[in-house]
Amino acid sequence: MGFSLIDFAHSILTVERLNVAIDAAQLLSDIDLQIEQGEIVSIIGPNGAGKTTLLRAIAGDFFHTSHRVSGDVQLAGRALDQWPIADKARHVSFLPQFSSLNFPFIVFEVILMGRAPHSTGDTEDRRIVAQVAEMMDLTHLLSRNYTQLSGGEKQRVHLARVFAQLWAEQGHEPRVLLLDEPTSSLDYKHQYDVMQAIQNFAKQGVAVIQVMHDVNLAAQYSQKIVGLVGGCMKFEGGVEAIMQPQMMHALFGITVDVVRNPSSGLPVIV
Protein backbone atom coordinates (compact mmCIF):
# COMPACT_ATOMS: atom_id res chain seq x y z
CA MET A 1 0.00 0.00 0.00
CA GLY A 2 2.87 2.32 0.67
CA PHE A 3 1.14 4.32 3.34
CA SER A 4 3.92 3.49 5.75
CA LEU A 5 6.14 5.79 3.69
CA ILE A 6 4.11 8.80 4.74
CA ASP A 7 6.14 11.34 6.63
CA PHE A 8 5.21 11.18 10.29
CA ALA A 9 5.03 14.95 10.69
CA HIS A 10 2.83 15.32 7.62
CA SER A 11 -0.82 15.92 8.41
CA ILE A 12 -2.80 12.82 7.48
CA LEU A 13 -6.19 14.47 7.56
CA THR A 14 -6.83 17.91 6.09
CA VAL A 15 -10.14 19.71 5.98
CA GLU A 16 -10.36 22.79 3.75
CA ARG A 17 -13.26 25.23 3.40
CA LEU A 18 -15.73 22.58 4.50
CA ASN A 19 -19.38 23.65 4.27
CA VAL A 20 -22.32 21.45 5.16
CA ALA A 21 -25.95 22.47 4.70
CA ILE A 22 -29.28 20.74 4.76
CA ASP A 23 -32.30 22.44 3.22
CA ALA A 24 -31.94 26.10 4.22
CA ALA A 25 -29.87 25.43 7.35
CA GLN A 26 -26.14 26.00 7.17
CA LEU A 27 -24.66 23.48 9.59
CA LEU A 28 -20.96 24.15 9.07
CA SER A 29 -19.26 27.15 7.48
CA ASP A 30 -15.73 27.25 6.11
CA ILE A 31 -14.04 24.82 8.45
CA ASP A 32 -10.29 24.39 8.04
CA LEU A 33 -8.51 21.77 10.04
CA GLN A 34 -5.31 19.77 9.92
CA ILE A 35 -4.62 16.71 11.98
CA GLU A 36 -1.30 14.98 12.27
CA GLN A 37 -0.46 11.44 13.11
CA GLY A 38 -0.47 10.69 16.81
CA GLU A 39 -2.42 13.82 17.59
CA ILE A 40 -5.55 13.94 19.77
CA VAL A 41 -7.93 16.70 18.73
CA SER A 42 -11.01 17.49 20.79
CA ILE A 43 -14.00 19.33 19.36
CA ILE A 44 -15.91 21.30 21.99
CA GLY A 45 -18.80 23.72 21.85
CA PRO A 46 -22.39 24.24 22.95
CA ASN A 47 -25.30 22.02 21.85
CA GLY A 48 -26.11 22.39 18.19
CA ALA A 49 -22.74 23.94 17.35
CA GLY A 50 -22.09 21.36 14.64
CA LYS A 51 -19.63 19.15 16.49
CA THR A 52 -21.21 15.88 15.41
CA THR A 53 -21.77 17.26 11.90
CA LEU A 54 -18.07 18.04 11.60
CA LEU A 55 -17.14 14.56 12.75
CA ARG A 56 -19.61 12.94 10.37
CA ALA A 57 -18.38 15.08 7.49
CA ILE A 58 -14.84 13.94 8.21
CA ALA A 59 -16.10 10.35 8.35
CA GLY A 60 -17.75 10.76 4.94
CA ASP A 61 -21.28 10.09 6.21
CA PHE A 62 -22.84 12.79 4.05
CA PHE A 63 -22.10 11.12 0.74
CA HIS A 64 -25.16 9.03 1.50
CA THR A 65 -27.62 11.61 2.82
CA SER A 66 -29.33 14.65 1.38
CA HIS A 67 -26.84 17.07 2.98
CA ARG A 68 -25.04 19.44 0.64
CA VAL A 69 -21.31 19.29 1.23
CA SER A 70 -18.65 21.45 -0.35
CA GLY A 71 -14.99 21.78 0.41
CA ASP A 72 -12.26 19.26 0.61
CA VAL A 73 -11.53 16.46 3.06
CA GLN A 74 -8.36 14.55 2.37
CA LEU A 75 -7.12 11.43 4.05
CA ALA A 76 -3.43 10.75 3.48
CA GLY A 77 -3.38 13.12 0.51
CA ARG A 78 -6.33 11.49 -1.20
CA ALA A 79 -9.85 12.91 -1.28
CA LEU A 80 -12.13 11.05 1.10
CA ASP A 81 -14.71 10.10 -1.54
CA GLN A 82 -11.93 8.55 -3.62
CA TRP A 83 -11.35 5.91 -0.97
CA PRO A 84 -13.12 2.62 -1.69
CA ILE A 85 -15.50 1.84 1.19
CA ALA A 86 -13.82 -1.42 2.14
CA ASP A 87 -10.36 0.14 2.01
CA LYS A 88 -11.34 3.16 4.11
CA ALA A 89 -12.80 0.90 6.80
CA ARG A 90 -9.34 -0.51 7.45
CA HIS A 91 -7.97 2.95 8.18
CA VAL A 92 -10.81 4.99 9.68
CA SER A 93 -13.11 3.88 12.44
CA PHE A 94 -16.05 5.87 13.70
CA LEU A 95 -17.98 5.73 16.98
CA PRO A 96 -21.43 7.32 16.64
CA GLN A 97 -23.11 9.01 19.56
CA PHE A 98 -26.00 6.57 19.67
CA SER A 99 -26.41 3.03 18.52
CA SER A 100 -29.67 1.50 17.44
CA LEU A 101 -28.59 -2.14 17.61
CA ASN A 102 -31.60 -4.04 18.94
CA PHE A 103 -30.81 -7.60 17.97
CA PRO A 104 -29.65 -9.99 20.69
CA PHE A 105 -26.02 -10.45 19.71
CA ILE A 106 -23.70 -11.38 22.54
CA VAL A 107 -21.05 -8.80 23.43
CA PHE A 108 -18.30 -10.92 21.91
CA GLU A 109 -20.04 -10.88 18.52
CA VAL A 110 -20.54 -7.12 18.57
CA ILE A 111 -16.87 -6.48 19.27
CA LEU A 112 -15.87 -9.02 16.62
CA MET A 113 -17.81 -6.96 14.05
CA GLY A 114 -15.01 -4.42 14.33
CA ARG A 115 -12.72 -6.94 12.65
CA ALA A 116 -15.00 -7.32 9.62
CA PRO A 117 -12.95 -5.04 7.30
CA HIS A 118 -9.81 -7.07 7.98
CA SER A 119 -8.89 -10.53 6.86
CA THR A 120 -6.58 -11.34 9.70
CA GLY A 121 -8.14 -14.73 10.39
CA ASP A 122 -10.30 -16.12 13.14
CA THR A 123 -7.58 -16.84 15.68
CA GLU A 124 -6.01 -13.40 15.41
CA ASP A 125 -9.42 -11.68 15.54
CA ARG A 126 -10.30 -13.57 18.72
CA ARG A 127 -7.02 -12.55 20.31
CA ILE A 128 -7.70 -8.92 19.45
CA VAL A 129 -11.26 -9.08 20.80
CA ALA A 130 -9.89 -10.54 24.02
CA GLN A 131 -7.39 -7.71 24.32
CA VAL A 132 -9.80 -4.84 23.67
CA ALA A 133 -12.38 -6.45 25.95
CA GLU A 134 -9.77 -6.59 28.70
CA MET A 135 -8.90 -2.95 28.03
CA MET A 136 -12.55 -1.82 28.18
CA ASP A 137 -13.28 -3.98 31.26
CA LEU A 138 -15.73 -6.14 29.31
CA THR A 139 -14.19 -9.57 29.79
CA HIS A 140 -16.83 -10.63 32.29
CA LEU A 141 -19.61 -9.47 29.93
CA LEU A 142 -18.43 -11.20 26.74
CA SER A 143 -21.14 -13.84 26.72
CA ARG A 144 -23.90 -11.48 27.82
CA ASN A 145 -26.69 -10.39 25.59
CA TYR A 146 -25.92 -6.92 24.23
CA THR A 147 -29.53 -5.76 24.42
CA GLN A 148 -29.62 -6.42 28.16
CA LEU A 149 -26.64 -4.20 29.01
CA SER A 150 -26.78 -0.78 30.64
CA GLY A 151 -26.14 2.38 28.61
CA GLY A 152 -22.56 2.73 29.83
CA GLU A 153 -21.80 -0.92 29.15
CA LYS A 154 -23.20 -0.60 25.63
CA GLN A 155 -21.00 2.43 25.03
CA ARG A 156 -17.96 0.47 26.17
CA VAL A 157 -18.90 -2.37 23.82
CA HIS A 158 -19.00 0.00 20.85
CA LEU A 159 -15.75 1.60 21.93
CA ALA A 160 -14.20 -1.85 22.03
CA ARG A 161 -15.64 -2.47 18.57
CA VAL A 162 -14.07 0.65 17.02
CA PHE A 163 -10.82 -0.01 18.84
CA ALA A 164 -10.77 -3.55 17.46
CA GLN A 165 -11.27 -2.10 13.99
CA LEU A 166 -8.04 -0.08 14.22
CA TRP A 167 -6.10 -2.68 16.13
CA ALA A 168 -3.07 -3.30 14.04
CA GLU A 169 0.63 -3.57 14.28
CA GLN A 170 2.42 -0.40 13.34
CA GLY A 171 3.01 0.18 9.66
CA HIS A 172 -0.69 0.05 8.91
CA GLU A 173 -0.90 3.84 8.67
CA PRO A 174 -2.76 6.03 8.29
CA ARG A 175 -5.17 5.23 11.09
CA VAL A 176 -7.84 7.69 12.18
CA LEU A 177 -10.16 7.25 15.15
CA LEU A 178 -13.32 9.37 15.10
CA LEU A 179 -15.23 9.36 18.38
CA ASP A 180 -18.50 11.15 19.08
CA GLU A 181 -18.70 11.73 22.83
CA PRO A 182 -16.86 8.54 23.77
CA THR A 183 -17.30 9.07 27.51
CA SER A 184 -20.81 10.51 27.69
CA SER A 185 -22.39 7.69 29.68
CA LEU A 186 -19.35 6.33 31.48
CA ASP A 187 -18.46 6.44 35.16
CA TYR A 188 -15.14 8.03 36.23
CA LYS A 189 -13.15 4.83 36.26
CA HIS A 190 -14.22 3.87 32.76
CA GLN A 191 -13.75 7.43 31.49
CA TYR A 192 -10.18 7.11 32.65
CA ASP A 193 -9.79 3.68 31.00
CA VAL A 194 -11.11 5.01 27.70
CA MET A 195 -8.85 8.07 27.71
CA GLN A 196 -5.86 5.86 28.50
CA ALA A 197 -6.74 3.60 25.61
CA ILE A 198 -7.10 6.60 23.29
CA GLN A 199 -3.71 7.90 24.38
CA ASN A 200 -2.16 4.50 23.68
CA PHE A 201 -3.58 4.59 20.18
CA ALA A 202 -2.18 8.11 19.68
CA LYS A 203 1.24 6.95 20.83
CA GLN A 204 1.18 4.36 18.04
CA GLY A 205 0.57 7.12 15.50
CA VAL A 206 -3.22 7.00 15.31
CA ALA A 207 -4.86 10.38 14.75
CA VAL A 208 -7.79 10.84 17.11
CA ILE A 209 -10.62 13.32 16.64
CA GLN A 210 -13.22 13.32 19.37
CA VAL A 211 -16.28 15.36 20.21
CA MET A 212 -16.15 16.05 23.94
CA HIS A 213 -18.79 17.59 26.13
CA ASP A 214 -16.52 17.56 29.16
CA VAL A 215 -14.06 20.42 28.56
CA ASN A 216 -11.81 19.45 31.47
CA LEU A 217 -11.50 15.87 30.29
CA ALA A 218 -10.69 17.19 26.80
CA ALA A 219 -8.00 19.46 28.25
CA GLN A 220 -6.32 16.66 30.20
CA TYR A 221 -5.86 14.41 27.18
CA SER A 222 -5.71 16.47 23.97
CA GLN A 223 -2.94 18.18 22.05
CA LYS A 224 -5.33 20.42 20.22
CA ILE A 225 -8.81 21.79 20.94
CA VAL A 226 -11.28 23.08 18.36
CA GLY A 227 -14.12 25.32 19.53
CA LEU A 228 -17.28 25.46 17.42
CA VAL A 229 -20.18 27.88 17.77
CA GLY A 230 -23.07 28.00 15.32
CA GLY A 231 -21.23 25.96 12.71
CA CYS A 232 -18.19 28.26 12.65
CA MET A 233 -14.79 27.52 14.07
CA LYS A 234 -14.32 30.02 16.89
CA PHE A 235 -10.81 28.95 17.67
CA GLU A 236 -8.29 26.18 17.30
CA GLY A 237 -5.17 25.73 19.32
CA GLY A 238 -3.22 24.07 22.07
CA VAL A 239 -4.71 23.35 25.46
CA GLU A 240 -3.00 26.28 27.24
CA ALA A 241 -4.20 28.80 24.65
CA ILE A 242 -7.78 27.59 24.73
CA MET A 243 -8.35 27.03 28.41
CA GLN A 244 -8.79 30.72 29.16
CA PRO A 245 -11.78 32.44 30.82
CA GLN A 246 -12.46 34.68 27.80
CA MET A 247 -12.38 31.70 25.43
CA MET A 248 -14.87 29.79 27.53
CA HIS A 249 -17.07 32.85 27.67
CA ALA A 250 -16.98 33.19 23.88
CA LEU A 251 -17.84 29.53 23.52
CA PHE A 252 -20.42 28.78 26.19
CA GLY A 253 -21.40 32.28 27.39
CA ILE A 254 -20.43 31.45 30.96
CA THR A 255 -17.91 33.01 33.32
CA VAL A 256 -15.36 30.54 34.63
CA ASP A 257 -12.11 30.46 36.53
CA VAL A 258 -9.13 28.50 35.31
CA VAL A 259 -7.08 26.71 37.95
CA ARG A 260 -4.30 24.13 37.77
CA ASN A 261 -4.68 20.42 38.29
CA PRO A 262 -2.32 19.86 41.24
CA SER A 263 -0.95 16.59 39.92
CA SER A 264 -0.69 17.15 36.15
CA GLY A 265 -0.33 20.92 36.15
CA LEU A 266 -2.85 21.14 33.30
CA PRO A 267 -5.55 23.84 33.30
CA VAL A 268 -9.00 23.03 34.69
CA ILE A 269 -12.06 25.25 34.49
CA VAL A 270 -14.28 25.60 37.54
Binding site: S99, L101, A116
Partner: peptide, 22 residues
Protein backbone atom coordinates in the same frame (compact mmCIF):
# COMPACT_ATOMS: atom_id res chain seq x y z
CA UNK B 1 -24.71 -12.81 5.56
CA UNK B 2 -21.83 -11.08 7.30
CA UNK B 3 -22.71 -7.70 5.77
CA UNK B 4 -26.28 -8.20 6.92
CA UNK B 5 -24.99 -8.70 10.47
CA UNK B 6 -23.11 -5.41 10.25
CA UNK B 7 -26.19 -3.70 8.84
CA UNK B 8 -27.97 -4.45 12.12
CA UNK B 9 -25.62 -1.92 13.74
CA UNK B 10 -27.05 0.78 11.48
CA UNK B 11 -26.42 1.81 7.89
CA UNK B 12 -23.75 4.35 8.70
CA UNK B 13 -21.95 1.94 11.05
CA UNK B 14 -22.05 -0.79 8.42
CA UNK B 15 -20.53 1.60 5.89
CA UNK B 16 -17.76 2.48 8.33
CA UNK B 17 -17.07 -1.24 8.61
CA UNK B 18 -16.57 -1.47 4.86
CA UNK B 19 -20.01 -2.60 3.64
CA UNK B 20 -21.25 -1.19 0.34
CA UNK B 21 -24.68 -0.60 1.87
CA UNK B 22 -26.48 0.63 -1.26
Amino acid sequence: ARALNLLLLGESEARHLGVDVE
